[in-house]
């Protein structure tokens, strides 16, 4: 959280989150970790890569790995459409793309509005859920991108 865009209101910092949709739910990621948002483009598969890796794209001469977010979250697969986006993020010293159904907006959330992640099931399964927040009559699921992959999986991206 050290690199968050924060506006201090007393002891309750306001943090900006980029929200995106995935399988009907709204997720949020810290705006400071978002580099850019791309329309869906052809993704070149990488033989032998992990199942959660869709492939690579050429981003202005730089190779960026794209992660299948639906697969990572255990959600059913769906065809891409005009709203599909690749969000380029930086996490754990890696620049990767995550495929999402659509990108919604940037919201401002007070730290105090964020509830801790639910304590059900084993911790491993939901390690990347940082918390939830009630906003505009719906719940935002806030993602901690560093925990989207395990240390081994982050390291594996270097070899692609």
């Amino acid at each position: 959280m050290a690199n968050s865009v924060q506006t201090r209101t007393g002891d309750d910092p306001v943090i900006q989150w980029v929200t995106f949709r995935l399988a009907g739910e709204t997720y949020g990621i810290n705006v400071m970790q978002v580099q850019e948002v791309l329309r869906f483009t052809e993704i070149a598969p990488v033989p032998g890569s992990s199942h959660h890796v869709l492939g690579i794209i050429n981003l202005r001469g730089r190779v960026v790995t794209v992660i299948d977010t639906r697969l990572r979250f255990g959600l059913p697969q769906e065809e891409t459409n005009d709203n599909t986006r690749i969000v380029i993020i930086e996490a754990s010293s890696h620049v990767v793309g995550i495929l999402v159904d659509s990108v919604a907006e940037v919201v401002y959330l007070r730290q105090s509005e964020i509830e801790t992640s639910p304590n059900v099931g084993n911790d491993e399964s939901a390690r990347y859920i940082q918390g939830v927040c009630h906003k505009d009559d719906e719940l935002l699921i806030l993602i901690e991108l560093e925990k989207l992959l395990t240390d081994e999986e982050w390291s594996e991206l270097d070899s692609l």
Binding site: L75, V120, G121, S125, V132, E138, L139
Partner: peptide
């Protein structure tokens, strides 16, 4: 509407806000 969370057991239906 229940808000489903990824990576949860089958018996977790979601969050009632």
């Amino acid at each position: 509407k229940l808000t489903g969370l990824p990576g949860q057991p089958d018996w977790f239906m979601g969050i009632l806000p």
